[in-house]
Design a protein around this nucleic acid. Sequence first.
DNA 1: GTCAATCTCTAGTAAATTGATAGAGAATGT
DNA 2: ACATTCTCTATCAATTTACTAGAGATTGAC
Lengths: 144, 144
Amino acid sequence: MDVSVKGEYALRAVFELACRETDEPIKIAKIAERQQIPQKFLESILAQLKQGGFLGSRRGADGGYFLARPADNITVGDILRHIDGPTTPAQRIGQGEVGSDSPFPELWQKVERALSSVIDRTSFADLVVRWKENRARKVVNWDI
Amino acid sequence: MDVSVKGEYALRAVFELACRETDEPIKIAKIAERQQIPQKFLESILAQLKQGGFLGSRRGADGGYFLARPADNITVGDILRHIDGPTTPAQRIGQGEVGSDSPFPELWQKVERALSSVIDRTSFADLVVRWKENRARKVVNWDI
DNA sequence: GTCAATCTCTAGTAAATTGATAGAGAATGT
DNA sequence: ACATTCTCTATCAATTTACTAGAGATTGAC
């Protein structure tokens, strides 16, 4: 019931890209530095995210990564499922079907829906908005 | 974002005990057989659940395990958190606080609340009721 | 067309976690 | 005394996690 460090790194990296409004690529090294992520580890994560169709990249000087589609079209759930695997708690061997002789499949379904109602309804555009609001609120409080 | 096999075994074992309405202890071997759990592994799980205050036990012939409190007073969340550790996805090092310079703590809080709304509101008494309803429905369908 | 910067690909690896198993010891009821 | 059953300690193979090294492939600039 937890998110791997790798999953968190992936979220933070995508968030970093979503914060920029330009389409200019951002370098791995920059993201690693700003988000405090080991660079080599981040490289493999970004490659995986590109492979998943979430990011695009360009090599060479002035190369880097960028979002492959608008931030309001990438959800936290998209990234987590791609990096950490399926979020469903118990699609295991054994009595897997709802309506079977066990109360658990139904329970897992409820858990999944509850989880999904958060992570699949939160896009990176949402995260950026919330984050900006928070910063704005802070600044106002300081000013008064 | 998943439940360990150990966590599932724990839930199934407690469910098995909750299904019995008697206060008579049930043997490890019986639970292991009925729920298809490796017995030695189950032993350690039950010991841990006892240690957590959820179960009681008696040794000797006619010994076994039993619920330490009524089934409507033990939730799925209780068991999962005791066996699999805290269910919160990212109380890690680094920017941990809500309202910090990151949108994620707030997100994790939402995830946690969503999760909690299921697992902390589902008692084993609930599971037993649902399971019995399901069985009843099946039998009716067969009869018609 | 060379060069430096940057992504990309293949490997590897130490540490922790997971899912168990073995076997001796301690309590219980008869 | 004795069989039964829980309890405690120790161990372990396989997998996953978090991370690193280093050579190779592109790109844009000069």
